[in-house]
Nucleic acid binder design. Sequence first.
DNA 1: GTCTATATGGAGATAGAC
DNA 2: GTCTATCTCCATATAGAC
Lengths: 256, 256
Amino acid sequence: MTVVRRKTAGRKAAASTAGRPAAKPAKERILDAGEQLFARNGFYGVSVRDITEAAGVDVALVSYHFGGKRELFAAVFRRRAEMLNPERLALLEEVRRSALPGVPALEDIVNAFTYPMLERSARGGAGWKSYFALVAQVNNSPEWGPVLMTEHFDPLVERFIAVLREALPGCDAREVYWGYQFLTGALTLTFAETGRIDKLSGGLCRSSDLDSVHQRLARYVAAGFRALCTAAAPAPHGARSKTRRSALRKIPRRPP
Amino acid sequence: MTVVRRKTAGRKAAASTAGRPAAKPAKERILDAGEQLFARNGFYGVSVRDITEAAGVDVALVSYHFGGKRELFAAVFRRRAEMLNPERLALLEEVRRSALPGVPALEDIVNAFTYPMLERSARGGAGWKSYFALVAQVNNSPEWGPVLMTEHFDPLVERFIAVLREALPGCDAREVYWGYQFLTGALTLTFAETGRIDKLSGGLCRSSDLDSVHQRLARYVAAGFRALCTAAAPAPHGARSKTRRSALRKIPRRPP
DNA sequence: GTCTATATGGAGATAGAC
DNA sequence: GTCTATCTCCATATAGAC
């Protein structure tokens, strides 16, 4: 970490009232700073001193307000999940109602899942960008993923999967779960905006171009779900088809 | 970290020769232990003492053999990339040659990218499982992703994308790059085997069931690529279509 | 190549003044 | 609610013996 240490923390709340009429309370400043730093370097890559110094508050306030570093991390993760997910759920239900008495298009279901993220990331400020980078790291962490993702996202995801299954009648539930697994991997990496696609494409694509994502992800994923649910067929249950399509078999070692 | 500290490291190489006829050299033991621990807790979540104590070697050997902790991390990441990627590249070229004078099926191209990973993860031992969990974290890290992924995977990925483009004639390059972005997110998360899909599906799907992945991922991704390259049409260049399909527009606020 | 011993600094947490 | 001061432990790295 290369966070510059403030030399003088002696003046009373100097940074928190610098010019501005109404400074944020310390608790919120800690959440903001923690979000930014955790997103960049992960839980262990940031010290509570890094965070409190970036926030312009005293070290001891982390323990006072949150109980400890781990609880702060969980609070950072929880804060925006509680803003975002009710909106995604409401949009999902709206999509479903709009389609009655039929079922919604897969693209619309996926869009309900992703569009509120796009809006926050594109127009919600830097805090949201940091947050999505943090979610990507948590989602891919064996240590945190099964705890925090499960706790804060699974209720929404279960509803999302239920609606997907309505839109994919006759499709085995396992296909839908795997389809969601691929979706969440693609989604969280993309919203993390690591900049890798920029380098890879020689500048042709930009991580920050979420409008491109918006156009493409729902289409890509919807096609993926359809492919899983048609070609894989509704297997009896618990058994795997004995014959696979040649495309998925081990590649032939010699040309025919 | 909750790694148990060994109390006595005084005996000469006690752990490294415990019963076994030919123990691995210290350098390799450090790589193995580092791989396992970095995969679980990330770069900052593990100390060099955790690693050397798990490896049964002295702390100072990390500096001696690698130069420092960061160099060890890079070495861990590099080691298996150099085993895996030549095999993926060879398989890709074989797929391409087998299809001449035509172009390979998208499923076969994706399969060449993923099948060597499946083989290593399923039958290569615990080290490979750790490695793929590590790759997932690196891929999603703003700090490490653009450095290590670019350095060790982009040469392969560029060739992979070139072959994809042959198989998708007339498709805009940007569609292929975004399609790859979605693929790598899905792939690295899935091979990380965080166990989240197990919880989410109530045990119906298992993270460790890579055979299920093998059946589904290539199909899902190939369908996604086709959807990007047909519906999005070959736009003139640099401009975005003015009319989007209704499915991708903002969801209507009221039923019609 | 490996180990001991140590240098130097940063980690998280908290008691108690204000 | 906030800050000072401090406790205790752990971090990485390295000089030098074997």
